[in-house]
Amino acid sequence: MRLLLVEDEPEMAAAIITVLSKHGNIVDHVPTIEQGREALKEGVHEAVLLDRQLPDGDGMSLLSDMRRTGDTTPVIILTAHDTSKDRVTGLDEGADDYIGKPFVAEELLARIRAAARRASNYASNIVSEGNLSMDISTLQVLVGGTNLDLPRREALALQILIRRSGRTVMRPSLEEAVYGFADEIQSNALDSHISRLRKRLADAGAEAMIHTIRGVGYMLKGAE
């Protein structure tokens, strides 16, 4: 998943990014409400992790703006403001979850998965095409029941392809899913990732192929 973290404390932000990145997520980090607003205009994030005490105000104002403008991106509040009243206020304002600091990393990961699952209306985390299946929350890939280890960027590419199986995924959408704001993208980087992913799937005996839609993007499709 691609996540937006709005957190001004450098050490806390670094710790959160480390945890989330280890589990296959791309994390875009900004330290202020205003930068959060700008980041959200990109429309590429599957969830927002939002602190309340920020240099330019209460993070709740960003949440209020999102909901007022119809932005339904899941928002999880991460804050030291963790009284019962604070939680009630946050949830009433439209937060999908509210977690007090400090928090347990595994619980945060589980809550992010749950929020994203609710937003995408997936009853299950498992998406399949032929004998290829993927847990889209953990990025675990199975081919015929056998685990297939994929590098993170290839797994992120497969995540969006399998979720849109049978449909063309445009290059910009794939790049947004695979690369963060801070990543420098070489002109042929995406093609290289897709080429290696295609070979790994073929070598593992996957009954699904990645087709190139020339000049447009890629499509994952089951064998006919």
Score class of each variant (00 low, 15 high):
G145Q: 06
P151Q: 03
R198W: 00
A116L: 08
A119E: 08
D56I: 10
V19T: 13
V141W: 05
D28Y: 02
N121T: 10
T18A: 13
G24D: 04
S195W: 00
Y122N: 14
L139R: 07
D183L: 08
I213K: 14
L161P: 11
A14V: 09
A182P: 00
R153I: 01
T32M: 08
G145M: 05
F103S: 06
G144M: 05
E176I: 00
R200D: 02
A223C: 00
H23G: 00
D96L: 09
R118S: 06
R163D: 02
A177D: 02
V178K: 05
I99T: 07
V104S: 07
R111Q: 06
S84R: 15
L197A: 01
S84W: 06
A95E: 06
M134S: 04
I126F: 01
V6C: 01
G130P: 08
A204E: 03
S21K: 10
R163Y: 00
L132F: 02
A15C: 05
D51L: 12
R68V: 06
N125Y: 05
R214P: 00
A39L: 03
L161W: 03
L132Y: 03
L148H: 02
G90F: 03
L190M: 13
D96E: 15
G145E: 05
G130I: 05
D97V: 05
